[in-house]
């Protein structure tokens, strides 16, 4: 049997692609946090720095991310369908002792994140959701250069209640997804033992909470009027 059709092989692919996206989420969060001003020039300087990287690196990075997302979605759906078939007839009484809301709803939190990803890319990457604040069309001066006004676009977006709500809701889904996903990675790779596994469950949830707080800090501070454009 091929690695990609075996039970553990697909589990490992889910774990590695998932964890790669978690690492991306770390970098993305650190980059986003430049909006709070620790970087000279703020998020506009950060965005300009990213876009001035050599084109092959940008394209390669994007293609790699697309591959991770695709593999994760493909096997996620395939495995969920297979696993639902593992018990054709459900129990009349359901009693769970270790499984959590997060672990039982990975397909749904994952689907929400997939939809959010499409919206997020349309909003800030392709900039078609609110063209009147699109950064590519509004250049501002930075270090004697004209650069896209990412700060204006982000602030403009999150001043809208529904946009902030969508982002906050999506981050709840991210929290749930990662609270199961992070610890699951270590178990799937075979890196957990009876002593470390319960600790990894707690640490994974804590890290997921960190992602949630870090990411929602941006729309919340903007919507509350603390962070201004």
């Amino acid at each position: 049997m091929q690695f990609t059709s075996s039970s553990i092989g697909r589990k490992i692919l889910m774990a590695i692609t998932g964890q790669a996206m978690v690492l991306f989420a770390v970098v993305h969060l650190l980059g986003n946090s430049s909006i709070f001003g620790w970087l000279n020039g703020g998020i506009n300087a950060y965005a300009e720095h990213l876009h001035s990287l050599p084109l092959p690196i940008i394209i390669g990075f994007r293609l790699a991310l697309l591959a991770m997302v695709s593999v994760h979605i493909w096997f996620g759906i395939q495995l969920t369908i297979e696993n639902r078939g593992g018990r054709p007839q459900q129990y009349a009484v359901k009693s769970t002792q270790k499984a959590t809301f997060a672990s039982e709803n990975m397909i749904w939190t994952g689907s929400l994140l997939g939809l959010f990803l499409a919206y997020h890319l349309a909003h800030f990457t392709f900039q078609v959701i609110s063209p009147d604040t699109a950064a590519l069309k509004h250049l501002v001066p930075l270090h004697n250069e004209m650069v896209p006004n990412v700060l204006g676009m982000v602030v403009g977006g999150f001043k809208n209640f529904f946009v902030s709500l969508i982002y906050t809701g999506a981050m709840v889904a991210l929290f749930l997804h990662l609270s199961h996903g992070i610890q699951s990675f270590f178990q799937t790779m075979g890196w957990s033992t009876d002593k470390s596994q319960p600790i990894l469950v707690k640490l994974g949830t804590l890290v997921a909470l960190g992602f949630f707080l870090g990411y929602v800090a941006i729309p919340l501070t903007i919507f509350a009027g603390i962070l201004k454009g």
């Binding site: 049997m1 075996s6 039970s7 769970t96 959590t100």
Partner: peptide
């Protein structure tokens, strides 16, 4: 053999 027998796959619920 596990797959061929019709068992599901592990998703780390720990039930």
């Amino acid at each position: 053999a596990m797959i061929e027998c019709g068992f599901g796959n592990c998703t780390n619920h720990y039930e």
